[in-house]
Design a protein around this nucleic acid. Sequence first.
DNA 1: TAGATTGTTAATCGATTAACAATC
DNA 2: TAGATTGTTAATCGATTAACAATC
Lengths: 224, 224
Amino acid sequence: MWYNSPPMNEVERQEPLPLPTIRRYPAYLRLIRERMAAGEDEVSSAALAAALGIDPVLARKDIAMMGVPGRPRWGYPARELADAMQRALGWDNTTDAALVGCGSLGHALVGYGGFAEQHLSIVVAFDADPKLHGQTIHGVKVRPMSEVGRLVRRMRIHLGILTVPDAAAQACAAALVAAGVKGLWNFTSVQLSVPDDIIVQNVDLAQSLAVLSHAIANRQRVKA
Amino acid sequence: MWYNSPPMNEVERQEPLPLPTIRRYPAYLRLIRERMAAGEDEVSSAALAAALGIDPVLARKDIAMMGVPGRPRWGYPARELADAMQRALGWDNTTDAALVGCGSLGHALVGYGGFAEQHLSIVVAFDADPKLHGQTIHGVKVRPMSEVGRLVRRMRIHLGILTVPDAAAQACAAALVAAGVKGLWNFTSVQLSVPDDIIVQNVDLAQSLAVLSHAIANRQRVKA
DNA sequence: TAGATTGTTAATCGATTAACAATC
DNA sequence: TAGATTGTTAATCGATTAACAATC
């Protein structure tokens, strides 16, 4: 039945996953791995949903995006599902990252060994402060900013982590981009300006705190 | 015109702010304060929007929720707007917080002095490790877990910050809740189970990383 | 077979964007 | 006055939920 298999290039063109779906994948993955570790081969949408506090049908929708079929009465094949989600997230291979800014937050990130289950590895760290140069944080040597361009390029690093003071953020981002980075994980509160093809993901604690303190101040329930 | 002023209890009952709106407030506040520091008294929706990379009409909608009127051709009164937003977020008074888990992330959070502009103050820290007890992190003494109940209650702390290993998360959350905390800022990847009236805000780095690595892997543009 | 669970299509809901009116 | 900017109402868009069919 050759006419049922899609043409070769169809395989590449995946339809875009909704952002909320992508955000739920890590939590699904966590549960699936737990279940697998416990010796189970299948996982139900109800179990997945319970772990996230969402409706089972939403979990099924999310899973449907992966094209991994489930079996009524059994659930979904754990290993296949996990593999598919990892592939979708680009977590099937380890990604090397460069961290810029070795303050306490940078320190914490480098030290956080099990980075969301080993798909991310911080392999170089940079800081402007000469006093830190040559020091080692959890096995990663701190290097001067002047070497960002050379090292990041040579190591073919595609992901930059920004944990510098706000004032330095834009300049450091520019240095990383110039060095060939494709994405920036931005822990500063600066809205970075970068070329269109560079992907920026902001981690803004103030946003999160705003939701929390507003809810406390108004004693309302908040989901997620 | 007494009939135009709302009855006393109307003042309390604010209609709920959309979550996305709340999340944008901190960034608005940042820009407004910048402008005020630069000596300006008014700020336009266009300036606000540019700082966040959003449409000006969206900024106006967000501002409309505050009930602070703007002047065509001038913009909005900076001080009034900042005050209103701060009040909405519960950021008009400093909130005391208790942090549980003095690992590297906990350390970083305690050390992060200017917490989103001083409305949050970590006043106690706890850890299970006896080796840390009595030590001081940026002026905050680390205390044993056994004192959570007594101290948090006595200090009337309403906000708990959870930076413990996943395995300890649920137990520590329970201890904080028992001690009278109203909200939890959860930096673990555990889905906490707490009473209905307790507000939990999760900071899940894996979620954020998922969006970023998926976008890099598929070379797509991501907003925010 | 009966029943649990997956899978799909339609309805709802909420946020953003578009269009345009109001005002200083 | 003209023009910039605020303010509001309607249209669009996307995600979630509801309803129900399909299947092991």
